[in-house]
Amino acid sequence: MENLLVHDKQIVTPGTILTTDVASFRPGRGTIREQDAIISVFVGLVQIRSRFINVVPLNGVYLPTVGDKVIGIVYEKTPIKWLVDISSNYVGVLRPQNAMDREFKRQGRGRSQEEQEADEMDQFQVGDVLIAKVISFSRTTDPQITTLGKDLGKVNNGTLMSIPAPKIPRVIGRKGSMIRTLMDDTRCRIVVAQNGRIWLNGAPENVALAKFIIEKIHEEAHTSGLTDRIKEYIVEEKSKRGL
């Protein structure tokens, strides 16, 4: 395309001028318009989508978004809520009304309101790992999370790993293709959360293989032909490890 100073998938740095043709192009994510130019604000990959120029960052802290699945670690407990580390500069807040499941409520029948409330906060302790969902977040309120819902709640076993949040889409793949391949070929249960954390469970040697492959995806997230190459890596590693 004429008038563009960069090409699709080029790696750029903050301040790089992407185009001076502000009539033909609009600034997308990761860019700003400065008078007669559209410039990148990140170290990232150029992405050209018809008239929009985006720059996808290659690193960054997680920004909570409503609807996201997140893996959090409880780090503080007050009488009325849990504070959860969701690997962001914002702290996740979990209130008992978003944490009480049916089992818990059933046990509570026949007891007084006070007795029930006293036990509400026993469900999770500091250090617990939770798979949760972000239900609200705005500039003035901390992100509220919930553990009610399918596949949400406390995890009692398994391993946790972390990669930068911008790389998570690569681990998921289009329509979940990459993560499905990973789970099938490594025989592990894997939960990938948007805040960069990944929970794995399975036989130790399978989990070790899965972690290795995920690190590979993390390193090569910005390259092409990744899905095929990952399939090759898995085959290679399995034979190296005798799996």
């Binding site: 960052p57 978004t65 996201d68 911008p166 889409p169 690569r170």
Partner: peptide, 11 residues
């Protein structure tokens, strides 16, 4: 290859 919601960093 890219899938899921794109969690762009704060920008």
């Amino acid at each position: 290859d890219e899938g899921g919601d794109q969690p762009y960093s704060q920008q």
